[in-house]
């Protein structure tokens, strides 16, 4: 009994340590700017910081940009990643080299790609456009998501497809009707990861974006001005920025846990 209480105290402590910065950001977003650094927890509660963010800083637009780019890039990437991952898993397409190349692309620092991408996109008129940003995110996330999905597909017994194909399905039909539904937890987990990666991405958004296409991370960074950091607005922006991630995590929690342990415990 005593040990139980002790371990609970330990866990609560750990949770507080993890959650405290987030809770403090939430608190800061809800107090007047001049009280941001005060030690009183809630001097007065106000939504003024949010109002300023939307009315004066055009944050609504940034938010929509982020949502559009992150969602679209996932929508573009997932089918490609699923098919590529399946090909790697089942047919050893490209052999070890293709697998290694896929993984190796993740080892390149993004900065190394930033400048060439910028020059390329400038020539194609894709800078300062959501299309350009979507393409970049799709391209950057494709290898990573392919790798993850490959693991999920490898964990699916090949006999399932054999059964489907003798049952009358084509190879594509077996993939579509059997493999994809069975891999759904993994695909959902991969999609959420892809969304989070795009949602948080800063470097390409900064370099390729303009005032109209700035995403949430860029907008938040721009609140650090020469006149100081507008911490109350930053706090409000951050609070809103983690919102979709929390919703996604909650919505997908079951799948995510299932998905992430899928490959290890067959």
């Amino acid at each position: 009994m005593g040990r139980r209480i002790l371990s609970h105290i330990g866990l609560i402590l750990a949770v507080v340590i993890v959650l405290f910065p987030i809770l403090w950001v939430l608190r800061t977003s809800l107090v007047p700017a001049h009280d941001s650094y005060s030690s009183t927890i809630f001097p007065t509660v106000t939504f003024d910081n949010y109002r300023v963010l939307f009315a004066e800083k055009n944050f609504g637009r940034n938010y929509m940009n982020s949502l559009i780019v992150a969602s679209l890039s996932v929508i573009v990437t997932m089918p490609l990643a699923a098919m590529t991952g399946y090909a790697f898993a089942r047919f050893r397409t490209g052999g070890r080299l293709a697998r290694f190349a896929t993984l190796a692309s993740q080892m390149l620092p993004p900065v190394a790609l930033a400048l060439p991408t910028f020059m390329l996109f400038r020539d194609f008129g894709l800078t300062n456009s959501l299309t350009g940003l979507t393409i970049v995110y799709a391209a950057v996330n494709l290898p990573f998501l392919t790798w993850i999905l490959m693991g999920f597909f490898e964990a699916i017994p090949e006999d399932l497809e054999g059964a489907a194909m003798t049952d009358g399905a084509t190879r594509w039909g077996a993939f579509w009707r059997i493999v994809l539904p069975v891999a759904a937890p993994g695909i959902a987990a991969a999609a959420v990861l892809g969304f989070i990666l795009s949602w948080n991405e800063f470097l390409f958004a900064l370099i390729l974006g303009g005032s109209h296409t700035a995403t949430v991370p860029v907008a938040l960074a721009s609140l650090q001005t020469s006149n100081g950091v507008q911490i109350s607005n930053v706090a409000a922006g951050v609070s809103l920025a983690i919102l979709p991630l929390m919703v996604a995590a909650k919505f997908i929690q079951k799948y995510l846990v299932e998905g992430l342990s899928f490959g290890s415990v067959r």
Partner: peptide, 8 residues
């Protein structure tokens, strides 16, 4: 199949 390969 040995594994039955039922569609889960």
């Amino acid at each position: 199949f040995q594994s039955y390969a039922l569609y889960p």
